[in-house]
Structure formats: structure tokens, C-alpha cells
Nucleic acid binder design. Structure first.
Length: 448
DNA sequence: TACCATT
């Protein structure tokens, strides 16, 4: 079917409304196509504007590349189509350079000329914003690592280009991992959070992962209503949620006994964080450009839950995300997303039904070992990221009006309940560890 | 002082 030396091509700069069937005619003229796949976001399923293409014959790939790569611009795009061997064909990370402190006027060709003396250039692109303005930096990929290294040795800091504020930067480009970290740091900076603790723990807890997956599933369920910009905002909010949920205000505690218990998080004294908690007349919580409160609003009392589970807890992200998506088919899914991505949705949600107190079997969870001060509101906020909450109730002693430190949360679907249990069972809050499990069905353990 | 889109 396909030649053994066939080349898998990466195709970039594709309008996001074009699917495989639309792209096929463009590429079929160079030969029989073995496989053509539009690249979609792992969690949201959103078209990423690029695709993978494998022809049956190696020669077809070479023809397509020379005929199309940088040769033609698809309607609606402001840069020419990219058709070149996929990274998977030949991992390029160790020979790709990031070049910073370029002048704003310099073009791909200018940069190419600067780097040509050091070897064969496989790729050379000045990064530009949506308006085409140079970002003052570029990627340059050489044929070999040694060539790239030679360029660094000679060019890095060697001169200051006209229009640049500092001397030329030439270094290996970020790896995928570094890119992820950088994104996190950017978000953290935007929120005015500088704690290394937030950055270390923020990304990897089971809670934040589950949060992100649930949010992604919700975004996907509603993507039909979203403009690309709104989607971007929603996706960025997921990152923010990841940091904030465990973020800055949390402080790790080393267990005093010699156990292997993972670090727990204690609530920082409220007086230490006035800007975040709205003391002294500050705005209650950090605010996004949209005017929406940042997700720290989830924990207005300053108590941030932290998972007692290992950071490498075996949560299968994809499975969870998809399990969630299957159940988020209508407006009922809305309220969970509302707290994080409200501005993205053009229509306001219907009010959460307050009459129905309990969901179907498998949708109701029992939470024990709640902090004394937690009320309905706190547990609602804690569990709303996992889905449409029908009710959230902390049980209160009739005589004293004090919490009995347990409660129930009901969702409208079992996947949300499962996700909540997965993420929150075993959470340590202060000195307590949440117990989260399915509520016993009413008729359970009742033989008659 | 920035880091493209890669199942």
C-alpha cells in the first residue's frame, strides 16, 4: 500500500475550517494518498490548522513538497502553506535554534544569510504576529547539531542589530517540555504569582489535571458556539486553573514524622495575602482582562485543597476527558464551565435547578472529613469544576448550627461523580484528608 | 528577553 521509504509530511498553515475531504483534492494531484489526518487538539478536538500527510510513494511526497511548500497560500491565511517532512521523520530538536534580538525589519532571507556560513539550513522563519509584524526573533534549523552549535559559538552575543535593544541571542530552541513550563510561567506572571512552589506543584497534581480535562471536555462540548478567540481564552483559563488551584497561597508542609506521606498544604494565614483575598479594599480576587475573577475565587476563604496523592497518580487523562465529553451534550453542562469561561459563551446559562436535590444512582457523592468551616458554598465551589452540580449540601447539627463535617454533592451524570472522586478522595486540607466516595443508593444494605 | 502549528 505504501512504499517502505515513504515520507510522512507535516502540512501547516491550513485554514481551520478545512477537513480531510477538503484537503484531499489539493494533494491528490501529486500522487495517491496513503493517509491524511488533520491534527486536532487532544482534549478539545479543535482543528489545529495543520495536518499529517503520507503518500503511497516517496516520490509523490517530494513532488508535493517542492510544488507547494511556501509556494501557495490557502484562502484566509496570511502565510504560505508548509509542506515538509514531519518532525517524527527526523527529530529536529537538537539542531533547531532560537534567535532573539533581531531587528524588526529583518526578513527570513536576512536571517538565512547570517546563518548560512555555518551549514545547511533546513528551515528559517522569522516569527510574526497576526498582523505580520516581526516579533524580533526567529527559528533556524540546521542539517546537523554540530552546525547549529557552530552558529551559537560564533554568533551568540556577537553584535547588536539595528533596532534591537540588546545583543543577538542564539541558542537551542525550547524543547516541548520547556515550552510547557514557559507557558505556565507566563500565566503565573500575569497573575502576579512568583512562587516557585506554584510552578513546581501547579501542573502535576491529580486535581489540576482532572480540572483541566474536565474544562477541556466542557469547552469541546460547547465549541460549536465558540469563536476561535473565545476558545483561546477558555484554553488559557484551563492553564490558570491549573496553577491557581494549588497555587501560590499554598504552602507545603513536610510531615514531622518520618513517613513517606507526600507534602500536604496548609492554609496560609489570611493576613499574608490581602491582595488576593480582597482585604483592605482591594478587588476581591485577581481579575482577568475579561473582567472575570481568576479561579482563586474558588477558594475565597484561603483554604486550598491539595491532593495527598502522588503527583504521578495514575489518572488517565484522555479517558477521563472523553468520558466527560460523552456526557456533556447539552446546556446542562454549562454551569460547570461558567465559573472559568463564562465570557466565552454568548448565551447565559439556565439557572442550576435547585428543586432536584439528588441525581440518579452513581451521580451522588459523599464527602467526609470536611473542614469545620466549609459550608454548602465551599463544597459547591470545590466540586463544580467536575460537572453540573445539582446540589451541594453540608450537614449541620440542628442544635448548634455547626457543620457535621460531611456532606453530599450530586451531579447530573456519573462521569462527573467519578472524576470528582478520582481527584478529590484523599485530598488533604489543613490537617484533614477528604474521604470522597459514591453515596450509597437509598436501597443499599436494606434487604427488605 | 521574545520560543510556530507536530497525531
Amino acid at each position: 500500500m505504501k512504499e517502505p521509504d515513504a515520507i510522512k509530511l507535516f502540512v501547516g498553515q491550513i485554514p481551520r475550517h478545512l477537513e480531510e475531504k477538503d484537503l484531499k483534492p489539493i494533494f491528490e494531484q501529486f500522487g495517491r494518498i496513503f493517509e491524511l489526518t488533520v491534527i486536532k487538539d487532544k482534549y478539545t478536538g479543535l482543528h489545529k490548522g495543520c495536518a499529517f500527510l503520507t503518500y503511497c510513494a516517496r516520490d509523490s511526497a517530494l513532488k508535493a513538497q517542492s510544488a507547494l511548500h511556501e509556494q501557495k497560500t490557502l484562502p484566509g491565511m496570511n502565510r504560505p502553506i508548509q509542506v515538509k517532512p514531519a518532525d517524527s521523520e527526523n527529530r529536529g530538536e537538537d539542531r533547531k535554534l532560537f534567535v532573539g534580538m533581531l531587528g524588526k525589519q529583518q526578513t527570513d532571507e536576512d536571517v538565512r544569510k547570517m546563518f548560512e556560513p555555518f551549514g545547511t539550513i533546513a528551515e528559517c522563519t522569522v516569527l510574526r504576529g497576526p498582523d505580520g509584524a516581526s516579533k524580533g526573533c526567529a527559528f533556524v534549523k540546521f542539517q546537523t547539531h554540530a552546525e547549529a552549535q557552530a552558529a551559537i559559538s560564533t554568533l551568540h552575543s556577537s553584535r547588536t542589530l539595528p533596532g534591537a535593544s540588546s545583543s543577538l541571542v542564539v541558542k537551542f530552541a525550547d524543547t516541548e517540555k520547556e515550552r510547557g513550563l514557559r507557558r505556565m510561567q507566563q500565566v503565573a506572571t500575569q497573575l502576579g504569582m512568583f512562587s516557585p512552589i506554584a510552578l513546581q506543584f501547579g501542573a502535576y497534581s491529580a486535581y489540576t489535571q482532572a480540572l483541566m480535562q474536565q474544562q477541556a471536555a466542557l469547552v469541546a462540548a460547547h465549541s460549536a458556539y465558540l469563536s476561535p478567540m473565545a476558545t483561546m481564552a477558555a484554553v488559557q483559563m484551563q492553564h490558570m486553573a491549573a496553577i491557581n488551584a494549588n497555587g501560590l497561597i499554598a504552602t507545603p508542609i513536610t510531615p514531622s514524622s518520618g513517613t513517606s506521606t507526600p507534602p500536604a498544604i496548609a492554609a496560609t494565614p489570611v493576613s499574608a495575602i490581602p491582595a488576593v483575598l480582597g482585604i483592605n479594599g482591594y478587588s476581591p480576587v485577581p481579575t482577568q482582562p475579561t473582567g472575570q475573577p481568576a479561579p482563586d475565587a474558588l477558594y475565597p476563604n484561603g483554604v486550598h485543597p491539595y491532593p495527598a496523592q502522588s503527583p504521578a497518580a495514575p489518572v488517565d487523562p484522555l479517558q477521563q476527558a472523553y468520558a466527560g465529553m460523552q456526557h456533556y451534550t447539552g446546556p446542562a453542562a454549562y454551569p460547570a464551565a461558567y465559573s472559568l469561561v463564562a465570557p466565552a459563551f454568548p448565551q447565559p446559562p439556565a439557572l442550576v435547578q435547585q428543586q432536584q436535590r439528588e441525581g440518579p444512582d452513581g451521580c451522588n457523592i459523599f464527602i467526609y472529613h470536611l473542614p469545620q468551616e466549609f459550608t454548602d458554598s465551599e463544597i459547591l465551589q470545590m466540586f463544580v469544576p467536575f460537572g453540573h452540580v445539582i446540589s451541594a449540601k453540608v450537614f449541620v447539627d440542628r442544635a448548634t448550627n455547626q457543620s457535621k463535617c460531611f456532606g453530599f454533592v450530586s451531579f447530573d451524570n456519573p462521569a462527573s461523580a467519578q472524576a470528582a472522586i478520582q481527584a478529590m478522595n484523599g485530598f488533604q486540607i489543613g490537617m484533614k484528608r477528604l474521604k470522597v466516595q459514591l453515596k450509597r443508593p437509598k436501597d443499599a444494605n436494606r434487604p427488605y
